[in-house]
Simulated scan of single mutants.
Amino acid sequence: MAKHEEVKNGVIFPVGEKNDAFAQFFVGQSYLQTLVADPKVNVGVGNVTFEPGCRNNWQIHRDGFQILLVTGGEGWYQEEGKTAQFLKAGDVIVTHDGVKHWHGATKDSWFEHIAITAGKPEWLESVSDELFDSLED
């Protein structure tokens, strides 16, 4: 049984539907509940839930930023050239414009965060199994 099973039902906001629209940019299953999608606001806000082992591809935010507010479970965040950071509920990550990074669940835990995103992401290659499997929580 995976750790933090309660996350799969949503911690603060609903889990949402399977994230099929962005599935090509993830390894494993994620879920997305859009919280703010107002065309008059230049920021998108979504509740993203990751099944154990799920992570998104490397990405760069252009002309913007991304803020992650971790609400449940255990996960990873890594910027290119830096050591991966272990994440748990209450952690906050700020990714600045032009920084290559990825984030997702640990191998054995559900993970959820609120993503506040301005600008457009440039999706890149997937995080290799070799890199992911080398992380220790």
Rank of each mutant, 00 (worst) to 15 (best):
A2M: 14
K3Q: 11
K3W: 03
H4S: 15
H4K: 13
H4A: 15
H4D: 14
E5V: 15
E6T: 12
G10R: 10
G10K: 13
G10E: 11
I12H: 14
F13C: 03
F13K: 02
P14K: 14
V15Q: 14
G16I: 13
E17C: 05
E17S: 15
E17V: 12
E17W: 01
K18E: 15
D20L: 14
F22A: 14
F22V: 13
A23D: 05
Q24R: 08
Q24M: 10
F26L: 14
F26T: 09
V27F: 09
V27P: 07
G28T: 08
Q29N: 12
S30V: 04
S30C: 04
Y31A: 12
Y31E: 13
L32A: 11
T34F: 05
T34R: 10
L35Q: 02
L35T: 09
V36M: 05
D38Y: 06
D38H: 08
D38T: 11
D38R: 08
D38P: 03
K40T: 12
K40D: 10
N42T: 11
V43M: 12
N47L: 04
N47P: 09
V48T: 11
E51C: 10
P52T: 10
P52F: 03
G53C: 09
C54N: 10
C54T: 15
N56M: 08
N57G: 09
H61F: 07
R62N: 12
R62S: 11
R62F: 06
D63I: 00
G64E: 02
F65T: 11
Q66I: 05
Q66V: 04
L69N: 11
V70H: 00
T71I: 09
G73H: 00
E74H: 01
W76Y: 01
E79N: 03
E79D: 11
E80W: 07
T83E: 12
A84E: 04
F86I: 03
K88R: 10
D91G: 04
V94M: 11
V94R: 13
V94L: 11
H96Y: 10
D97W: 01
V99T: 12
H101Q: 10
H101Y: 06
H101G: 00
G104C: 02
T106C: 08
T106I: 07
K107P: 04
D108P: 01
D108Q: 03
S109V: 05
F111I: 05
F111T: 11
E112F: 06
E112K: 00
A115Q: 13
A115G: 09
I116T: 09
T117M: 13
A118N: 09
G119M: 09
K120N: 14
K120C: 03
P121L: 05
E125T: 09
S126W: 08
S126M: 13
S128T: 15
F132Y: 15
D133I: 01
D133R: 09
S134P: 07
L135H: 02
D137P: 01
